[in-house]
């Protein structure tokens, strides 16, 4: 079996995933170093969310291997898989808050259910994490349905960081938010990384990508077509990246009308 790169926190090697005849990931090779923030950009339907779900084991790749801390994780089951998932936090695109629970229990959920933390202690941590994302105790007792989209994203972020995970995934963190709220979320994401957390974000919001990343990779038709430091993206010399960052209809990227 091939060895993972020593310094990599997360590594994907030749990952392929198809749904029926549609190839979504076509042999992805990607490395995220420890403490690094990598943003994967790409149009809708290019496989960004599928890639994250493959890393988390929500979807199983058809081919290839995924390593976390040098360990292959594609075929983990049971307790080993639960232990592996404790390394992660995730902010979902639509926040994915549990409707049936108040805000504080959403934030404390991973602590109570996933880590066996006592409810009183977990509640204290939840209030503290909510404060970190700028939400007061009055929000903690509300139902997720009573919150605006931006507040739901902040609660989702508080939930993602509640257990101080080693790796955080952000799925379209600013999609659907106004520019000011987007910047608030971007600042919070940057703040979560102060303790050396490794981050993988997927987005097509370039303002967000530039602000939160150390490195950017571009995904197109299931392949990484370019990757490099964020500061080099404007001079990438890659026709796909140029078309994407300038938002041009003409270029090598052809929008598929049908999926």
């Amino acid at each position: 079996m091939a060895q993972a790169t020593a310094t990599a926190k997360v590594e994907l090697r030749g990952v392929k995933k198809r749904f029926g005849p549609k190839v979504v990931l076509d042999g992805i090779d990607l490395t995220i170093e420890r403490g690094e923030s990598l943003v994967v950009i790409g149009g809708s339907g290019t496989g960004k969310s599928v890639m994250i779900k493959c890393v988390l084991g929500i979807l199983r790749p058809d081919e290839g291997e995924i390593y976390v801390d040098g360990e292959p994780v594609t075929h983990l089951h049971g307790r080993k898989r639960e232990a592996f998932l404790r390394k992660f936090g995730m902010l979902f695109q639509g926040a994915a808050l549990f409707d049936s629970l108040p805000v504080w229990e959403n934030v404390a959920f991973g602590l109570i259910q996933g880590r066996g933390v006592d409810r009183i202690k977990a509640r204290e941590i939840a209030y503290q994490k909510l404060a970190e994302v700028g939400l007061g105790p009055e929000v903690a007792v509300l139902s997720p349905a009573e919150l605006s989209g931006g507040m739901q994203k902040r609660v989702g972020l508080a939930r993602a960081i509640a257990a101080d995970p080693e790796i955080i995934f952000f799925d379209e963190p600013t999609t659907g938010l106004d520019p000011i709220m987007s910047d608030v979320i971007n600042n919070l994401i940057v703040a979560t990384r102060a303790e050396g957390t490794t981050a993988l974000s997927i987005t097509h919001d370039l303002i967000s990508a530039r602000k939160i990343s150390d490195r950017i990779a571009m995904l197109y038709k299931g392949k990484i077509v370019w990757h490099g430091p964020t500061r080099e993206i404007d001079a990438s010399g890659n026709a796909y990246v140029d078309q994407f960052i300038h938002g041009r209809a003409e270029g090598p990227i052809q929008m598929e009308v049908r999926g």
Partner: peptide, 13 residues
């Protein structure tokens, strides 16, 4: 709404 996926990421079966 991805709440079931969220359960998985919170180490809950």
């Amino acid at each position: 709404t991805e709440q079931i996926d969220a359960l998985t990421t919170l180490a809950t079966n």
